[in-house]
Computed example of a mutant assay.
Amino acid sequence: MGKIIAVCISERKGVQKKSVDEGIFIEDFGIQGDAHAGKWHRQVSLLSHEKVVAFNELGAGVESGAFGENLIVEGYDLKNIPVGTVFKCNDVVLEITQIGKKCHNGCEIFKKMGDCIMPREGIFARVLNGGTIKSGDEIVIKGE
């Protein structure tokens, strides 16, 4: 079982996401108000809380949303969750569609640290069922 540490959105692409009190997840679209939402396979991005903490211990000093992640999740090593895995949080159901991504040029974190964890640690999902998620909510792999 895992726990949602933060829900983050950005109103436009190319900027860091900001923590919000709760996210409204829309089936087959993503999070309401997030610039990366849409009818594609990367509607929601997830990153392991433990990986963010470890990166910050190296001096990164990043806050929730800095990597462009929508959900920071504690309790799962997300990069080792296979594509096709289904997570459930409240009424929201997410299906993992991609692990990792190519980092865009000019990432501020990479410029500062010489590294960025999102390309290898971040995972992506599509929304199978909508609902609301907020910090502190429990998230589980369906069938666990």
Rank of each mutant, 00 (worst) to 15 (best):
G38C: 04
G75K: 10
D28N: 15
H36M: 05
E57K: 14
F67A: 10
E74T: 06
N80Y: 15
S64T: 00
G38T: 02
S64F: 13
H49W: 11
A60K: 05
K51S: 13
R42M: 10
L78H: 05
G75H: 11
L71M: 07
G68I: 13
K18Y: 08
G68F: 11
K79R: 15
G61K: 06
H36F: 06
S45L: 05
L71P: 05
V53A: 08
E69I: 12
D34H: 06
Y76S: 10
A66L: 06
N56T: 09
G84V: 14
I31T: 05
Q43S: 05
D77V: 15
K18S: 13
A60D: 04
G65Q: 02
G65C: 06
I81C: 14
L58C: 08
E74C: 09
F29N: 07
E22W: 11
K39V: 06
N70P: 05
D77Y: 11
V53N: 05
G33A: 07
A35W: 04
H49Y: 13
D28E: 12
L47F: 04
I72Y: 10
G65L: 06
A66M: 08
Q43N: 04
D77C: 13
I24W: 07
E57D: 11
E57I: 09
V52T: 02
E74R: 14
A60T: 06
A54G: 03
Q43K: 05
